[in-house]
């Protein structure tokens, strides 16, 4: 388990100080796939670098299985880093080494015999589906293949934690999908805790179980992915979950009607003709101002923005919606 307690990081530069992280506290369970999502500049990369201590936190602690990383000596820290390996947006392979030698690299650092390192590296290349590319050089591979080699390399020292820093951001959607399913396989087969740093909601949607939303160096929200998708409480979460919020707010701004947002999830809710039922049973006529659906971990999620000419109708609609299982409704304030 990784516990991050009251972590802050301030960068000093001639232009003044930048607070990259402010009082971040998270706990990540062993075996979890944990997403850390935020816009550029939210402090994600700094946070992940504080976890393996490539960056020294200004305040706070990172505990790995109860061990405070700050208390380790340089030598102990180097050993610990073999348990917390990392893959990167730019893959960061050694371009002058063959794929096999790249995977051997972390094993060479530990002083493992070259025969054993070679054997293990071949197995790992096989695991990521690149057994036939062992003698190729990284420049001869596609981006997705290079990331697979990087994953094999990260697994070489049998880590407990795999940090993925924007690992799919340089890849096309199809390759992203295949890399993410590889990461999920590894998580399931080897029980490695995975921490995924990303700015893409789709990445969190497709593999994470828990998520923390980082906004301007603070944790805006954290919890179950499905929970946060269904009920994004913070403004930062809403911006990520409903990237169409821009369009929503322009709809709201140009209209003096009353709005409620309805979020529904699960097969039961999606199968119910909500709007028609409400019109028939309660006689409330709603206008759908905006709607979207997405699938998340095999569940359907939908979001609708309904508008009403009078506040009374909006309230009654709210009351009606909230009593239906798997449906959440909230009033939308024009000034949010």
């Amino acid at each position: 388990m990784i516990e991050i307690r009251h972590l802050s990081k301030t960068f000093l530069s001639p232009e003044g100080e930048t607070k990259a992280l402010r009082d971040v506290s998270l706990s990540i369970q062993t075996g979890d796939i944990f997403g850390i999502i935020g816009m550029s500049g939210a402090g994600k990369s700094t946070l992940v670098r504080c976890i393996n201590r490539l960056e020294k936190p200004s305040e706070g602690q990172v505990l790995m299985d109860g061990v405070d990383l700050a208390r380790l000596s340089q030598e102990e820290l180097r050993k610990k880093r073999r348990e917390i390996t990392m893959i990167f947006q730019g893959f960061n392979l050694l371009m002058q080494r063959s794929c096999l030698k790249n995977v051997c690299f972390p094993l060479e650092l530990t002083g493992e015999s070259s025969a054993a390192a070679r054997q293990r590296s071949l197995e790992l290349l096989d695991l990521v589906g690149l057994a036939d590319k062992a003698q190729s050089f990284p420049a001869q591979l596609s981006g997705g293949q290079q990331q697979r080699v990087a994953i094999a390399r990260a697994l070489a020292t049998e880590p407990k934690v795999l940090l993925c820093d924007e690992a799919t951001s340089a890849l096309d959607p199809l390759t992203t999908h295949s890399i993410l399913s590889l990461i999920r396989d590894i998580n399931e087969k080897l029980g490695i805790t995975v921490i995924i740093i990303t700015h893409q909601m789709s990445v969190v949607e497709s593999i994470c179980r828990h998520v923390a939303i980082l906004d301007q160096g603070r944790v805006a929200e954290q919890g179950d992915v499905s929970e946060i998708f269904a009920r994004p409480a913070s403004a930062a979460a809403r911006r990520l979950v409903f990237p169409e919020g821009e369009a929503e707010s322009s709809v709201i701004a140009t209209d003096d009607r009353h709005f409620i947002r309805v979020v529904f999830h699960g097969a039961k809710a999606t199968a119910t003709p909500l709007i028609a039922q409400m019109a028939l049973e309660k006689g409330i006529m709603a206008n759908i101002a905006y709607a979207s659906t997405r699938s998340l971990a095999d569940k359907m999620f939908g979001s609708m923005l309904l508008s009403f000419p009078e506040q009374d109708q909006a309230r009654r609609a709210m009351a009606y919606m909230t009593q239906i299982p798997d449906v959440i409704a909230e009033e939308v304030n024009r000034h949010v």
């Binding site: 490539l54 880093r81 990392m86 990167f88 002058q96």
Partner: peptide
């Protein structure tokens, strides 16, 4: 520099980074 950071993240010592990354690369 990202490649050097990678080596650090794998637990390489400064001498290992020089001998195994900086010079060969």
């Amino acid at each position: 520099p990202n490649t050097l950071e990678m080596a650090q993240s794998m637990g390489a010592s400064p001498m290992q980074i020089i001998a195994k990354v900086l010079i060969p690369e």
